[in-house]
Design a binder for these strands. Sequence first.
DNA 1: AGCGGAACCTGTCGGC
DNA 2: TGCCGACAGGTTCCGC
Length: 267
Amino acid sequence: MPELPEVQTVIDGLNQKIINQTISKIKVLRKGITNCSLLPIVGEKFLKLDRRGKYIIFHLSSELVMIGHLKMTGKFIVTSKYAKYHRHDRVIFFLGDQSKLIFNDIRCFGRLELIDSAELLEKFKNMGPEPWDSKYNPLYLKKKLENRRIPIKTLLLDQNLVAGIGNIYASEILFEAGIHPEKPGYLIMASEFKQIIKSTRKILKQALKYNGTTISDFRRVDEKTGEFQNFLKVYGRQGLACRICGEKIQKLRQNQRSTFLCPSCQN
DNA sequence: AGCGGAACCTGTCGGC
DNA sequence: TGCCGACAGGTTCCGC
């Protein structure tokens, strides 16, 4: 479900609801979600939230940091402590103000991990720059892509290249950039590096503005959907007319994942 | 090192 | 109606 815009939307929602709240009790309803017991953070407060790529970083009033990843179907929902449980609720944090923070995840791929704050740098040391970081620049892309034989679409999904892009936005970014998703890294030209960076920022910024994309599972912290699905130009539109040229949108399989493109606008 | 495929889980949808 | 396979926003591990 969640790529950078969805994760940021969740963080924005959580910022309004859990900051300065004390954790009074934690219920873990499913094993395998956490790397260790969450008991050490009972009694602590949520002080501040950060995002790195698709990870949510919960800074607490202690040396410990909780790191969350939603993977495909994870959700954070804040409701009244009296709201009934849902089928896929996995971890519940009871908060001081009579609300509860629920980690709900249909497929159980998502994770909540406690680490020492001193380990944060180490945790993300291999992750690529954020899309708005000046380190994400044409020279950087040239260095990282010039010897790669695999398709640019697959490369954009590599979190060690650039952080936060997933399967929906990879297709949308390459459509915006006018580049064919099967073009291998080493054949990308200098002008196209610039275009990829520009398109990455433009698409992600638009998606952020509309609170992310809801295809099926993604929900905001208040359970509303995102709205960017209404603005997708290729993802999920196979067989429909390209909004620019009228050509039929195609669907491909790359590395066991769907890719969408306009064969006439992208080459 | 780079690359492809399987695995991790659960649910839904389409075809027969 | 029912069964079966394919597919779903992600990441990691394994083997070549």
